[in-house]
Computed example of a mutant assay.
Amino acid sequence: MEDFHWTQLFNPEFYITMEIGGVPIGIYMVLFIVFAETGLFAGFFLPGDSLLFLAGIYSRELVETFFIIPSDLSNVTVLALLIAAAGILGNIFGYWFGAKSGQFLYNKKDSFFFKKKYLTESQVFFERHGGKAIIFARFLPIVRTFVPIIAGVVHMQKGKFMLYNILSSLLWSFTLVFAGHYLYGMFLEELGIDLKKHIEKIILILIAITTFPLVMKAIKSRKKNESGNAT
Rank of each mutant, 00 (worst) to 15 (best):
L214Y: 06
F187V: 11
G130C: 08
T211C: 09
K160C: 02
T120P: 00
V177R: 01
V124T: 10
L140T: 12
F126G: 00
L163R: 02
G130M: 12
W96L: 15
V124H: 09
V78N: 02
S173V: 03
E13V: 14
P213R: 09
L140C: 12
E127G: 05
L188D: 15
W6I: 14
G130H: 09
E2R: 13
P47N: 14
L204R: 07
H181M: 08
L171Q: 02
I57Q: 03
F97D: 09
K117G: 00
L46V: 09
F44D: 07
V124K: 14
K115S: 06
Q8I: 03
F45G: 05
A84D: 00
G185R: 06
A151W: 00
L31A: 10
K220E: 13
Y106N: 05
T120H: 07
S173A: 15
F14E: 04
Y106F: 15
I202A: 10
L73G: 04
I199S: 07
T210E: 08
N75K: 10
I134D: 01
G185H: 10
S227C: 10
I219A: 14
L62V: 07
E19Y: 00
I203A: 02
I33P: 08
M156T: 09
V63Q: 01
L82V: 04
V177A: 03
W172V: 03
K217H: 07
A133P: 02
R60A: 12
K220W: 03
M1E: 11
T231A: 14
L170R: 07
R144F: 07
I166D: 07
R138C: 04
E61C: 01
I92K: 07
L31R: 04
K160T: 13
R128P: 01
G98I: 05
T210G: 09
T77R: 06
Y95A: 02
F161D: 04
K109R: 15
G228A: 11
P24H: 09
I69L: 11
A151C: 11
G228R: 14
I88P: 01
G94V: 05
F53G: 02
V124F: 07
A80V: 02
L171R: 05
D110M: 06
L89T: 00
Q157T: 09
A151S: 12
L188V: 14
V76K: 03
S50H: 10
L46S: 11
G56W: 03
Y58T: 01
L170H: 03
G131Q: 06
F41H: 08
W6G: 00
F32G: 12
T38I: 09
D72C: 03
S122G: 08
F104M: 12
R222Y: 12
G43P: 05
